[in-house]
Each structure stands twice: as structure tokens, then as C-alpha cells.
Design a protein around this nucleic acid. Structure first.
Length: 420
RNA sequence: GAGCCUGUAGCUCAGUCGGUUAGAGCGCUAGUUUGUGGCACUAGAGGCCGUGGGUUCAAUUCCCAUCAGGCUCCCCA
């Protein structure tokens, strides 16, 4: 311990060899399902301009006010991306992706950074996958977005969750609702929590999201936004719900659902899991019809979601879901003596060319130790080579699972692997 | 920013009501007949008992501080 002088930073973790296959498995599922939906992958830099994140995510959000890793070098203000919606929209605008025609359906997998106190399901470097559909305000886009999200969990085998949805309204509906909400809360202002008092003027809807005990009674009896949606927002939301039902995607309406980023409009949704403990949000998202314009593009409607991969892994752990096979190798060449080692080294490529995974001992160990190693590496076959074998071109091929051996020429051994 | 908890071997953890060479299981290395794994057995390597200070004849153990980590609130994925 005292000797380990260098460590990862707080809240940042290595993904070690025993863990990385699970990550690969999840990533493969995401890529495969995205392909089925005809979504395209986008990759953006880890760092963005600080101003983009401030404008995109919102000056007053927790993410911007206390959670960004930002630094300045020369005249440039860098920030490690805390989320990927604003960067994807930045890329959309910067590269005029609208000119590709139609709506852009962009998915991503990557690392995000937020300077929070780590706890279970919360890290400073964490990973998300997500989707942004930019250029459509059709409820079909909202629903395909949700359907893709749900499909990933379904594929992986996570069934225990709760999809909550709400509409936070368009600007017109929202202003109306905000004033109604302020009128309702005003008489009780002094009794609200400090945080809620702060939010009262600029963003009273966030008060609905408060977990402070003193706010709860007011929240419970507060007017709900669904009663104040204008016809357009209302129709849109009803269509989203209707389509979800037609797809047999179960959800619950949650009039108190308000999301942490400022850019959300109309549809908002969140997927939570009882298997996660206190950080129970698996994924969240919604529509952000004003963000593209806010960032400097043409007014363009959009909808998206982001999902935490670490939280997904926690859920898999809780549910005992096996994401990956144990490690294994097809052939382990066991060599005795220098000539055999050379033969082993030069024979490995002949297997690999056939797509057969092959390895050998790197430590010059005894036969027994090599057999143990072959076993530990979960080798299907051990190919045993010594001076006699080299002389006669007859090698021992041991089936490690069946524990039986046969003696064959190299040609026959290679042919044997042709068939498999 | 606040609260609670924890730091002993690579990992998971015992333990010392303060007292000579600090333990287990797993893992690792080597061996148990000549060139054969898993099981079993034997041996071995590997610890400034997180760090600093205090009390004491004596501290890994008690006290204080500090650092690190975990969990929780807030918020989010």
C-alpha cells in the first residue's frame, strides 16, 4: 500500500482484464442493436469548449455550477465533457449534418466526467451510451428513441425497471405553468427549503424534483403541468404515450419528473431500477427542441437519451447476468527445449492464420508448469513438442476437456482445425 | 458542502482485553517417478498492520491528528 505511489484519481477506475470482456459485450450489444435501428455512431472529443457546455447544459445546473472539470491553456477554455448531448449538437451544427438529409440518428458510447463525491453508481469518470435524433419533432422519434433504450436492456436481460415519462411542455406552456406554480408556492415561500427558494424565480419546476422533506407537502398538492400544456404539446405527448402502448412498452406517468438539464422541452423520461440502490437512474432523456438553435444552428427539434454503463453493470451483477464467456484459447503449444520453442513460436502463426487462437509459454517453464498454465488459460488443446516430435514430425495433441491425446503430423493437426 | 463507516498479504477477511519470529482461505511459485493440467499433499515467496504524533518499559492493538477509501444526503447516468 505504502509502496503504491501512483493511483488513479478519486472516482476514476481502471477497467481490468477480468472486467473488460463485460464492457465489450455491452458495447457489442449496443452496436448491434443500433445497426438494427439504422442508427449511426458519432465520436466526439473528450474535451469541449467550456462555453458550449455552459450554454448547452445550462448555467444554473448542478453540472455546470459544481461538477465540471475545466481548465484554461492559453486562450482556450477546456472542459472534460460531462454529457454528450451538447457536444453532439455542436458537431451537428459545426459540420452541417442537416445537409446529409432527413433526421440524424446518432448514437454514442464514451467516457464522461463530473467532479462529484463518488459513491455507488457514481464516479468522476463514468461511461454512457446514448442516442440523439436531431431534426424531427414527430412523436415517432421520441418513441423510437425510448424503444432503442428499452431494447438494450431487454437484450441484456434486465427486466426489473420503471419507465417514467412526463411532458415538461414547450416554452409557451412552460411559462404559463411556471407562473401558476409560482402563484401556488408563493404563500409558502418561507417554508420552502433553501434550495427551492433559490430556484423559485429562475426555475421553479426544479422544485418539483426536490427531495427535501419540508418541500414534500407542497409538491404533493402542486398543480401539474399536464393541465397547462397547450394543444400542440398536449397532442404530442398523447401521441407519444399512445405509440408506447402500441409497442407494449410499459410506463408510468410522472407529473413530477423534471430533468436536470435546462434544455429539455416536452417529452421527458427516466428509467430507474430497484437493483441500483440510491443512484437508481439507469437512463434518462427527453426532447430538446431549442438546443440546436441555442448552440447556433437553425431551429431544429431533437430528442435523445443517455444511459450509464456502470449502473447497467451493477444491475447485471445484482441479477447475476453473465455478460461474457470465461477466457479461453484454442491451442496452447507446450514446448520442451530450445528447438521446440523456436518451432512453437514459428508455428503459432499457422494456427492464427486459420482464425484459431494460439499461444505458448513465455517463461521457459517446465512441462508441468506449462500444462498448468494451459489449464489456467482454459486452452481447448495442448500441443506438446519436444526433440522426438520434431525429428519424426509427430506431435501430441491433447484435448484438455476430454483428457485424451493423439499423435499426429503438423499437417494433420492443421487440417483438424480446418474442420472446426 | 454535510453525515456515518472502514484502512492488517495480490484478493476476501480473522486477530492481538498492549507483550517475543502477525494469521487463514483463495491466488501465485516450486515440488510430490522419467516429458502431462484440473483433485489432493508438501514447501516457498509475498505485510513499515494507511501515515504522523501522543500515552507506555513496550503500540499493529489505546488516544489524537492526517491521508486514503466506501456508503449516504444533495444531484445526476
Amino acid at each position: 500500500m505504502a509502496k503504491a505511489r501512483y493511483t488513479t484519481h478519486l472516482g476514476m477506475f481502471d477497467i481490468l482484464p477480468d472486467e473488460s470482456p463485460k464492457w465489450r459485450a455491452i458495447e457489442e450489444i449496443i452496436h448491434e442493436e443500433a445497426a438494427k435501428f439504422n442508427f449511426e455512431e458519432i465520436r466526439t472529443p473528450i474535451m469541449e469548449q467550456t462555453e458550449l457546455i455552459k450554454r448547452g447544459v445550462g448555467q444554473l445546473t448542478d453540472i455546470v455550477t459544481k461538477e465540471i472539470f475545466a481548465f484554461t491553456k492559453g486562450d482556450s477554455h477546456y472542459v472534460l465533457r460531462p454529457e454528450l448531448t451538447a457536444p453532439v449538437v455542436r458537431s451537428f451544427v459545426e459540420h452541417h449534418l442537416d445537409q446529409r438529409g432527413g433526421s440524424q440518428k446518432l448514437y454514442y458510447i464514451g467516457a464522461m466526467f463530473r467532479a462529484e463525491r463518488p459513491q455507488k453508481g457514481r464516479q468522476r469518470q463514468f461511461h454512457q451510451f446514448g442516442l440523439e435524433i436531431i431534426g424531427s419533432d414527430d412523436p415517432v422519434a421520441d418513441v423510437e428513441c425510448i424503444a432503442f433504450m428499452m431494447q438494450i436492456y431487454k437484450r441484456i436481460g434486465i427486466k426489473n425497471f420503471d419507465l417514467k415519462i412526463n411532458s415538461v411542455g414547450d416554452p409557451e406552456s412552460r411559462e404559463k405553468y411556471k407562473s401558476v406554480l409560482r402563484d401556488y408556492l408563493k404563500p409558502h415561500f418561507d417554508k420552502l427549503s433553501e434550495l427551492s427558494q433559490k430556484r423559485f424565480e429562475k426555475n421553479p419546476m426544479r422544485i418539483l424534483d426536490s427531495k427535501e422533506s419540508e418541500d414534500q407537502t407542497f409538491i404533493k398538492n402542486a398543480p401539474v403541468i399536464s393541465d397547462y400544456l397547450n394543444e400542440e404539446s398536449s397532442t404530442h405527448f398523447e401521441a407519444v404515450c399512445d405509440y408506447l402502448k402500441k409497442l407494449n412498452i410499459e410506463f408510468t406517468l410522472d407529473p413530477l419528473l423534471v430533468r436536470g438539464m435546462d434544455y429539455y422541452t416536452r417529452t421527458a423520461f427516466e428509467l430507474t431500477s430497484p437493483d441500483l440502490g440510491s443512484q437508481d437512474a439507469l437512463a434518462g432523456g427527453g426532447r430538446y427542441d431549442l438546443l440546436v438553435e441555442e448552440i447556433g444552428g437553425q431551429p431544429t427539434p431533437a430528442v435523445g437519451f443517455a444511459a450509464g454503463i456502470e449502473r447497467l453493470l451493477i444491475a447485471c451483477e445484482e441479477l447475476d447476468i453473465q455478460l461474457s464467456e470465461p477466457k479461453s484459447v484454442d491451442i496452447y503449444i507446450i514446448s520442451l527445449g530450445e528447438a521446440a520453442r523456436t518451432w512453437a513460436l514459428t508455428t503459432l502463426p499457422k494456427f492464427r492464420e486459420k482464425g484459431v487462437s494460439a499461444t505458448m509459454d513465455y517463461l521457459g517453464r517446465s512441462m508441468r508448469a506449462q500444462m498448468k498454465d494451459a489449464n489456467r488459460e482454459n486452452a481447448s488443446f495442448a500441443l506438446i513438442v519436444g526433440d522426438n516430435e520434431l525429428e519424426n514430425d509427430q506431435f501430441t495433441l491433447r484435448n484438455m476437456k476430454e483428457s485424451d491425446e493423439q499423435t499426429l503430423s503438423l499437417e494433420k493437426i492443421l487440417a483438424f482445425f480446418n474442420k472446426n
